[in-house]
Write a protein that binds this DNA or RNA. Structure first.
Length: 461
RNA sequence: UGCCCUGUAGCUCAGUGGUAGAGCAGGUGACUGUUAAUCACUUGGUCGUUGGUUCGAAUCCAACCGGGGCAGCCA
């Protein structure tokens, strides 16, 4: 067969009947009659299946009995108006070839499976409707992120994945080494001698591209990074993964207000883009995952996010009359239960909380005039909690050095970062957005492991 | 890391002290258009592992292993 296959996404949308088309895909289900059978074919190009009618007239009819759910097939035939109800088009097969058989123990049956079971077959689950939809949307969302930034004057920077910074203030790191773990070189004091390691020092997988992003924002103006990020915390929750993707824009000549504006317009724009381009995939989530998802996405796109200062948020939590597992007190971190109350019950919308206490935030955040708070902000969304964390960065050399001393961060190790304040320092700001958390929010999927192709979590790879 | 739940057929699950069951999938047959097709018949199990209690354990106990939920840490 020298024909090129036509994707089902194209055939489904066809304006007219078509002769001699080649359709290749995987069988979702088969329905038998005496002299013919129906195949429901999916090729991954869209969530919809194409119904194929195979009649006894075609050669090989008897041998095609072994076509089952999961089999891969090649069908050559005509696209015609369907005689049955439920679909506009169907393919009438002239030739059918079984490419790959699928024995009876094919794990993906034509029924609902638990998400837990699907995680155990992560190599096959993209063939299931829900996961096909998740990963097509994931692709569109990635593209939307690039479009948003590219069309708004940002440059894409590839920050390094291997780094030497061991305390960027964002959790535990995975070590990168070529040292023989059974017989490591040791220095005189008996400790492992990392000067003999590959990079002549300790190195790690990145937990954030922010610091490198700042170097490029203070030269190219507006940049974003979008890449894999690694955290070695043993977090066992539905919204943490050891390897995930993070979007980190960094903007020169920018204060916290503009930073919050950017985060909000970004979340709104990419959400609208997915709404506009992934309608049929989204319908699966509206129907089977979260009945109120569509309403919530429209709401996010159309209405402004609420903005409250940390201090106001504490007052709201005090005034709620709720009993908290963790006490609400100015100066303490907002706990999950507090964030959920703000976004899910009090405001019932995304909320941007800003101006956090200085003591609970990292060294690089800009100290406000009150000396007690920093210009930090978090965007909280219903169902997930924190989706964006950002800040205006401390651009004043003396204040930054003082903060570093306070946080016990060696000036020597970060001399290049401090240089950005020594030479032509400018106010700048940025944020980090968890890509998978945004994808969870948009699809309504409740577990981060179900929106990552092959999820890595503590104790499981 | 802490607390809690869970493990029975390829999948979803019932069986809570007397020796293993259903639906779907698979197989065989029926049906001229089905839509998770339907109908009839049918194959299929070291009940997570190891040890213990008992005349007898899927069921009770212990340890271990796997899975999940919530919390902390964060994106």
């Amino acid at each position: 067969m020298s024909h090129k296959r036509t994707e089902i996404s194209i055939l489904i949308e066809s304006e007219s009947e078509r002769e001699n088309v080649l359709i290749q895909g995987w069988v979702r289900t088969r329905r038998d009659s005496k002299d013919f059978f129906f195949l429901e074919l999916n090729d991954g190009s869209c969530i919809k299946n194409l119904q194929v009618v195979v009649t006894r007239e075609i050669s090989e009819f008897e041998t095609l009995k072994s076509i089952r759910t999961g089999s891969s097939v090649s069908v050559f035939g005509n696209l015609v108006a369907s005689k049955g109800k439920g679909q506009k088009w169907e393919a009438r097969a002239k030739e059918v070839e079984l490419l790959g058989d699928s024995p009876e123990n094919y794990p993906l049956q034509k029924k609902r499976h638990s998400l837990e079971f699907m995680r155990e077959i992560s190599h096959l689950r993209p063939r299931a409707n829900m996961f096909g939809a998740v990963f097509r949307i994931r692709s569109r969302l990635s593209f939307a992120i690039h479009r948003y930034f590219q069309e708004n004057g940002f440059f894409y920077v590839n920050s390094p994945i291997i780094t030497a910074s061991d305390c960027e203030g964002a959790g535990d790191l995975f070590k990168v080494t070529t040292i023989d773990l059974h017989e490591p070189p040791r220095s005189e004091d008996g400790l492992i001698d990392f000067s003999q390691d590959f990079f002549s020092q300790k190195t790690y997988l990145t937990v954030s591209g922010q610091l490198e992003g700042e170097a490029f924002a203070t030269s190219l103006g507006k940049i974003y990074t979008f890449g894999p990020t690694f955290r070695a915390e043993k977090s066992n929750t539905s919204r943490h993964a050891s390897e995930f993707w993070m979007v980190e824009p960094e903007i020169a000549f920018c204060d916290l207000q503009q930073d919050m504006d950017c985060a909000e317009s970004f979340v709104k724009w990419v959400t609208r883009e997915v709404l506009d381009t992934c309608q049929s995939d989204l319908e699966l989530f509206y129907n089977f995952v979260d009945k109120r998802l569509e309403e919530r996405l429209r709401f996010v796109v159309e209405l402004p996010f609420h903005r409250v200062s940390y201090t106001e948020a504490i007052e709201i939590l005090h005034a709620s009359g709720k009993k908290w597992e963790y006490p609400v007190a100015w100066g303490a971190n907002l706990q999950s239960e507090h964030e959920r109350y703000l976004t899910e019950e009090h405001f019932k919308s995304p909320v941007t909380v800003y101006d956090y206490p200085k003591e609970i935030k990292p060294f690089y955040m800009r100290t406000n005039d009150d000396e007690k708070t920093v210009a930090a902000m978090d965007v909280l969304v219903p169902g997930i909690g924190e989706i964006v964390g950002g800040s205006q960065r401390e651009e004043r050399l003396d204040v930054l050095l003082e903060n570093m001393k306070h946080h016990c961060i060696s000036e020597e190790d970060y001399s290049w970062y401090v240089d950005l304040r020594r030479f032509g320092s400018v106010p700048h700001a940025g944020f980090g957005l968890g890509f998978e958390r945004l994808l969870m929010f948009i699809t309504g999927m409740g577990n981060i492991r179900d929106v990552i192709p092959f999820a890595r979590t503590p104790g499981r790879i």
